[in-house]
């Protein structure tokens, strides 16, 4: 983890279609990108990534940590700050175990329905990420 600009904050927003979840300053945000996790600090280079299902970790201006489950979407690092558009976003504390189980079941059904190999690997990755989230949360 880079700590070069620790303490410096940047504007961070997390929105889902239903509502605006977070809007404020953050020191660091760890985003589950489709190609791997990445951390955003102040003055990150412009970057656009897709998300995979996972846990998004926010270190707020006061050093408080917030963990939010996101299910696919986009992260946009522009010159100003970071905006995460999540298809679904639920703070981990409010997340119920059966919600994940439900998502996994839906993903499994989708996987079973897909025949095209390219799309299949996509759906498999999605399912794997969901299982990973389930495992992490069970431990934590």
């Amino acid at each position: 983890m880079a700590t070069g600009t620790a303490g410096a904050t940047f504007p961070f927003e997390l929105v889902s279609p239903e509502r605006l979840l977070v809007s404020g300053e953050a020191r660091s945000v760890v985003v589950p990108g489709s190609e791997g996790e990445f951390e955003v600090l102040k003055d990150h280079a412009p970057f656009l990534a897709m998300l995979r299902p996972g846990i998004l970790r926010v270190i707020g201006a006061a050093g408080d940590e917030q963990r939010i489950f996101v299910r696919s979407g986009f992260a946009d690092v522009n010159g100003v700050g970071l905006t995460v558009l999540a298809e679904e976003a639920v703070p981990v504390e409010q997340l119920k175990g059966d919600q994940i189980v439900q998502s996994i079941r839906t993903a499994e059904e989708e996987l079973a329905a897909i025949k095209d190999p390219a799309q299949r690997s996509e759906a498999e990755r999605m399912l794997a990420s969901l299982r990973e989230v389930q495992a992490t949360l069970k431990l934590g």
Binding site: E35, A45, F47, L48, M50, G79
Partner: peptide
Amino acid sequence: SGGAIYEYE
């Protein structure tokens, strides 16, 4: 960023 090149992933 003044036209800095975006990276994509």
